[in-house]
Write a protein that binds this DNA or RNA. Structure first.
Length: 400
DNA sequence: CGAGATTCATGTGAAGTATACCTTTAGGCTTAA
DNA sequence: AAGCCTAAAGGTATACTTCACATGAATCTCGTA
């Protein structure tokens, strides 16, 4: 065993394909952002008044995942902060990703997280929401400043909560005396604005910028740029980058995905102690990414979700016809009885199934079976290759 | 035979409940002057 | 008297339950051709 480990460690330290892996990670902020010059200029143009101490317009940024929205905004923000520091302007920016699980569920949690990031302290529950607002205002009003709030994945937040939250935020300015606040909303959902309360819509999107997806060629350039820094000389086989770019271009030009693909391909190659990244590793990486995502969701899901999912999977195996809510509930019921867990009502299970549909674990749609009532028709949307693994995880965590 | 009426199995909304936290407040005890 | 601790009182959020009503097409009913 020890010898084997030695070998693994040796190969790891000696033959690493990476020069600097960090460059490929999502947290890395490159110095130049290719093909986004125009958007960056626009953002900068809109935010520039802040450097003169004026309030900036609220800004709304669209674009699919991995089109460089967050990166560009953060880039501009960083530059501005530098500038502001030099001119000793009291400018403050705060970035918040609304999608993080611990944050996303409620208005309360978003505000609480925001306050924590600003150095305040707020309990995780118990306070009236209004008091949390007051605390937030207190912090901002602490000293005179311009405050720019960047809300990433804002559509997620609104989907979970309501747009009342945004309404409150946009109105916040009228309650502020010394300071002023501007909001930058970043959204993946292009239709997001249309479903918004008109009042919110007009005040939030004083300015709008759209980030178009990258095409395959642009993706290749981005990848090459980073690959040069990330990898040692000549470890990439020809066409690896092209293939990563192609895969990602198929997924609406998602640069993040392209970079992940490249990194994971190389990691796989490294693990097999190869000294070159071959094209087939890209395929493997692609599969692995899908799989990891699902595993992640399932692992972090609450127990009752897992039980319901397990019921659905059992049913999928048992019969090849369509699956309905009632059947799932029966199986779930038995399962709970078997492992002595409390049994939730069918009403709740119905909601859980709807939520799992949102998570993309299953595919459920409401159908009417005429005389035989209305129900959801449920289909598992976990690939078979991953299903086994998922089942193991659940068996383990549930102790079935 | 075809237009309505009926029906089933569950979707869906609203309101209520239990639990887990949180702050505030008031009483009681300790402490220092 | 001031300070500190503790327990009770009064809030809220969240996950869930209960109740009640809404749905929508297969099936049934019945009048008519």
């Amino acid at each position: 065993m020890a010898a084997k480990l030695d070998r693994i460690f040796d190969s790891f330290s000696n033959k690493s394909l990476f020069e600097n892996k960090f460059v490929l990670q999502t947290s890395y902020t490159p110095k130049n952002i290719p093909h986004r010059d125009k958007q960056i200029e626009q953002v900068a143009g809109i935010l520039a008044p802040a450097l003169r101490g004026e309030r900036t317009s609220n800004l709304f940024v669209y674009g699919l995942t991995g089109t460089g929205k967050t990166l560009s905004v953060q880039y501009v923000a960083d530059e501005m902060m530098n500038r502001a520091k030099k001119n000793s302007l009291n400018l403050k920016m705060q970035y918040l990703n609304c999608k993080l699980r611990k944050v996303s569920d409620t208005e309360y949690r978003i505000l609480a997280e925001l306050i924590r990031k600003l150095g305040g302290d707020i309990p995780s529950t118990g306070l009236p929401t209004e008091q949390v607002y007051n605390k937030f205002i207190d912090i901002i009003e602490g000293e005179k400043k311009l405050f720019i709030l960047v809300l990433d994945e804002i559509d997620q937040a609104v989907k979970k909560i309501s747009d009342g939250f945004l309404y409150n935020l946009t109105r916040l300015n009228s309650e502020l005396n010394k300071s002023q606040i501007s909001i930058i909303g970043i959204s993946n959902d292009l239709n997001f604005l249309q479903n918004l309360d008109p009042r919110v819509k007009s005040s939030l999107s004083e300015e709008e910028i759209v980030f178009p997806p990258y095409n395959a060629i642009q993706l290749q350039e981005i990848l090459k740029d980073r690959a040069d820094k990330a990898f040692k000389e000549g470890v990439l086989e020809d066409g690896v980058i092209a293939k990563c770019a192609a895969y990602a271009a198929r997924e609406h030009g998602d640069a993040r995905r392209a970079l992940d693909l490249l990194r994971i391909s190389a990691e796989l190659a490294e693990r097999e102690e190869k000294n070159k990244v071959k094209i087939e590793y890209v395929d493997k990486a692609n599969e692995k990414m899908d799989k990891d995502k699902i595993v992640d969701v399932v692992e972090s899901a609450p127990k009752q979700f897992q039980l319901v999912l397990l019921s659905i999977m059992t049913l999928t195996d048992a019969k090849d016809s369509r699956i309905f809510t009632g059947e799932v509930y029966n199986v779930y019921h038995d399962l709970c009885a078997r492992i002595k867990t409390e049994i939730l009502t069918q009403r709740r299970i119905s909601d859980i199934i709807a939520e799992m549909d949102m998570l993309g674990l299953i595919n459920a749609r409401v159908i009417s079976k005429g005389r035989h009532g209305r129900t959801r028709e449920i289909k598992l949307s976990i690939p078979e290759k991953v299903a086994g693994r998922i089942k193991n995880i659940m068996h383990e965590s549930l102790g079935v």
